[in-house]
Simulated assay, not measured.
Amino acid sequence: MFALLTDIRYGQTRALVAAICCAAVCGIVFGLSMPLISLRLEYMTGSGLVVGLNGAAAALSTLVMAPVMPRIMRLAKPRYLLSLGLACAAALFLLFPVFVSVEAWFVLRFIVGCLMTLVFVISESWINQVVSPHRRALMLGIYGTALAGGFGVGGLLFAALDPMADTAFWLGALIFLAGILPVTLLKGPQAVPPDEEGSSIKAILKAAGSAPAAILAGLAFGALETLAFSLLPVYGDRIGLEHALIGALMVAAALGGLSFQIPLGWIADKTNRRATLFWIAAFTTLSPLAMGLSSGNLALLLMLVFLQAGMASGMYSVGLSLLGERFSGGAIAPANAAFIFAYGLGSFAGPPIAGGAMDMMGPWGLLVTLAAISGSYVLIVGLRSLTRQAD
């Protein structure tokens, strides 16, 4: 057992475990803090608009931070940056109960979001650089499952704690600090930063243009995931479900995200990652429409929500693995920054588009938006594949 912590032969495994632990830690704090901050703001202001804008601040931080991440990765060793980011996030989390004002919480949430973007870009680049090519999608599926599982654990912690007490903020800070331990203690290969040329905005744009199937998968998943957790409860309410049944919809979506990423990663590794993304998108184009037709059958609706969320989750891990297939070494960092930026853009733009569609079309507005997002991906990737075959 001690050899696992010291033997050079297991260095790659230790690096992978450290990176995956970063995802789990961030997932736990996200699952704890998102409902905590939203509920406290609701009590403070009574304004749904304020709560929504505060959530948008977190998405905006991704759009601001991702383009500069390759350059930041050149400033210090990636393990040090990860530890510093988690430590600063812990310190900022302790400031929420100190500065109890709407303005302060906007600033704090934005900065914490920037630090989490740092953690995600470095840890995902790290995995893609050190993992064996034949199991890349599988390991990224494990990474995504750890993130989703952490989100669930955070939700359970929120349910167990008093939202009006400050204990949850202290616990969140401790969880961030706990994430530093595997990063510093599990010795192994470092993440490789990009070179000077690869740290520019131009390199990020070039990477995005070189791997559109992967980058667009990040964009689509950002929108699909955010819509599932933000507007699916509204959909349930508008089709007349009781509160407990709306909760069942959310549980089904969460369980789907936990259950599918590892199997889909395994399939992508054994077959073709680009084709796997195409068929995932094809399924998530049709499943929302089936949800609308089955809204009168609760059991079928829950199954379709489970399948929709589960299949959609594969777009993130398989999309990342396609990046690792296309790029290597330090070149992965700008590509991953482009992927995270696309994810943030989808998260930022998806809810207002779907919300407007629901205002015009009723509950079907959400389902049509979900289908349109995945359908657009199917068309773009399908047409590119046909073009490549013609060439």
Rank of each mutant, 00 (worst) to 15 (best):
D269C: 09
L186V: 11
A244R: 02
R79G: 00
L36Y: 00
A290C: 14
Y143G: 05
A253Q: 12
P193C: 12
S259R: 00
R388K: 13
G310F: 13
G113N: 06
A253H: 08
F306I: 09
S321G: 11
P67C: 04
E225V: 06
P334N: 08
R136D: 02
A19I: 00
G362K: 02
F283S: 10
I204M: 12
T226A: 08
R238I: 01
V17C: 03
F2N: 08
F120W: 12
Q389G: 06
L304E: 00
L289S: 03
G188K: 09
A290D: 12
A337S: 15
T62E: 08
F327T: 06
A213H: 14
P133S: 05
F96P: 08
R109F: 10
A3M: 15
S230M: 14
V305M: 10
L227H: 01
M139L: 11
D359R: 07
V368W: 07
L108I: 10
A354D: 11
A331Y: 04
A349S: 15
D237T: 14
S200H: 13
T387G: 11
I340Y: 01
F30K: 05
K270A: 06
F221Q: 00
G375A: 09
S199K: 07
T117Y: 07
L301W: 13
F229G: 08
A228V: 08
M250F: 09
P78S: 09
S47E: 12
N54F: 10
M361K: 10
A275C: 06
S321C: 02
S295I: 15
N128R: 02
W279L: 14
A137E: 07
I373F: 14
G256D: 06
G256P: 02
Y143K: 00
V251N: 07
A76P: 01
L307N: 00
G48V: 11
V130G: 04
L258M: 09
D195K: 03
P78T: 07
L322Q: 09
V51S: 13
E325R: 15
M116N: 13
V131S: 09
E42G: 13
A3W: 11
P363Y: 15
P351F: 13
E42N: 04
A91C: 11
P70Q: 03
S347F: 01
F99R: 04
T145H: 04
W279C: 12
E124Y: 02
W105V: 03
F30Q: 12
F348A: 09
I180W: 04
A309L: 02
E103S: 12
L302H: 15
L289W: 14
I8D: 15
I20N: 03
S83Q: 07
V25R: 03
S132T: 12
L367R: 05
L108G: 06
A91P: 11
A254W: 13
F110K: 06
G375D: 03
S123A: 11
A173D: 09
F341M: 04
G155K: 03
V378C: 05
V378T: 05
P334H: 07
S295D: 00
L345N: 15
V107S: 04
L115T: 05
E42Y: 14
F278E: 02
V130M: 01
S123D: 08
F169W: 07
A213F: 12
I8S: 14
A244Y: 05
A244W: 02
G55M: 12
T276D: 15
F96H: 05
Y343T: 00
L224Q: 02
L320G: 01
S200E: 10
